[in-house]
Computed example of a mutant assay.
Amino acid sequence: MTGGTLVVLAPDKFKGSLTAPEVAAALARGITRRAPRARVRCVPVADGGDGMVEAFVSAGWTRVEVAAPGPTGEDSTAVYAVRGETAVVELAVAVGLVKLPGGRLDPMRADTFGLGVVIGHALDAGAREIVIGLGGSASTDGGSGLLRALGLRLLDKQGRELAGGSDVAALLEQVASVDRGGLHPAVATARFTLACDVDNPLLGPAGSVAVYAPQKGATARQMMKLEAGLSNWAAVLGRGYAEIGGAGAAGGTGFGTLAVLGAQVRSGIDVLLELLDFTTLVKEATLVVTGEGSLDHQSMHGKAPVGVAAAAKKAGVPVIAAVGRTLLSPGEIRAAGFAACYPLSDLEPDPARSISTAANLLERIGERIAMEHL
């Protein structure tokens, strides 16, 4: 092996265990232990869900902290990443499930107002390309909170403004029209991209409520109310937007931003790799290593490792997956673009111990990768 060997480590998080930067760091320790002359470049990634801002900060973007209310209105802070006129904001770190006080689910009160505060801060600072990472949502408000924070007025049949902060479903059911006159002036010239790995519509059996509201603590009766509220919200803003794939993402936040901000839905990992200029990063690489907690059939639909594999293949660089576990056959792993796959479950079959000792196991995987592929 020569000193010119370059290994690019581009893993996603191992959910419930390690962040993407922690996964990359553990792999790097193992690789350099066995191959001390190898150059290792850590480029942690995300598919639009939690961890997206962190990935950009790790890549050298500026980290900005801003005071923004959490999903149920409590005082909190959030962060976003910025470079030039491009800002990457993340729903999860502003109003996600992880921001609920004490982790208590509150499906009828939680909203996206705080995310709108973060976006407004980025617009005030001069950002005109806003990338919104959708995922980890605590709410089902159709993006209404975010839009109210940006100046959209929700009006009832008498033309009175409706305020949020109580029952999201009741609020959405009462909306008869909206007033866009007070929207943040920069909205007119800014471009909004939704980085998202789901293609659900807003309504119906594959929609936001049916698929995701139970995860947010909604009962069957609450789900009926939320669906009715979103249906009315769609009638006010335009039912055509409700059918777009991704409209149902993050409790319908996709729908609200599509209808009012003119947002476009894109694969989260594609957006991230493009903004990080991943093709250039891997151009001189000998090997790319990616991974996530579980490599399974869902991974084939817009998840980070498969996106990384496709980008690396385009650059002519072999890709290896280091994962918590895999449910794919060897043939499916090869078809997904991976030269090899190293699951932690091969070293530690007990899931609880695998999660708790993931960093050490990943170091051992890094050593194996160095011995077998460098």
Rank of each mutant, 00 (worst) to 15 (best):
258 L>W: 08
68 A>Y: 06
287 L>C: 10
268 G>M: 02
109 R>P: 03
189 T>N: 14
372 E>R: 07
370 A>V: 10
301 H>R: 15
165 G>W: 08
25 A>V: 08
80 Y>L: 00
13 K>I: 01
32 T>E: 14
268 G>D: 01
286 T>P: 11
266 R>D: 02
373 H>A: 12
131 V>W: 01
184 H>G: 12
15 K>M: 07
338 F>P: 11
34 R>F: 05
287 L>I: 13
305 P>Q: 12
21 P>D: 06
230 L>A: 04
79 V>H: 04
179 D>K: 09
198 V>D: 04
116 G>D: 00
79 V>C: 11
269 I>W: 01
352 A>Q: 13
147 L>S: 06
310 A>P: 02
256 G>F: 05
365 I>P: 00
122 A>D: 02
277 D>N: 14
58 S>H: 11
205 P>G: 13
283 K>C: 13
312 A>F: 05
88 V>Y: 00
83 R>S: 10
171 L>P: 10
267 S>R: 08
360 N>T: 14
265 V>K: 05
181 G>R: 15
81 A>F: 01
323 V>L: 12
56 F>M: 08
39 R>T: 08
132 I>A: 06
149 A>T: 00
129 E>L: 11
254 G>H: 09
232 N>S: 12
235 A>Q: 14
65 E>V: 15
275 L>P: 04
152 L>H: 07
272 L>G: 00
238 G>F: 07
135 G>V: 04
242 A>W: 05
262 G>L: 09
125 A>R: 11
231 S>L: 14
39 R>E: 12
154 L>A: 14
303 K>V: 06
36 P>E: 10
228 A>T: 12
56 F>R: 00
147 L>D: 03
310 A>E: 09
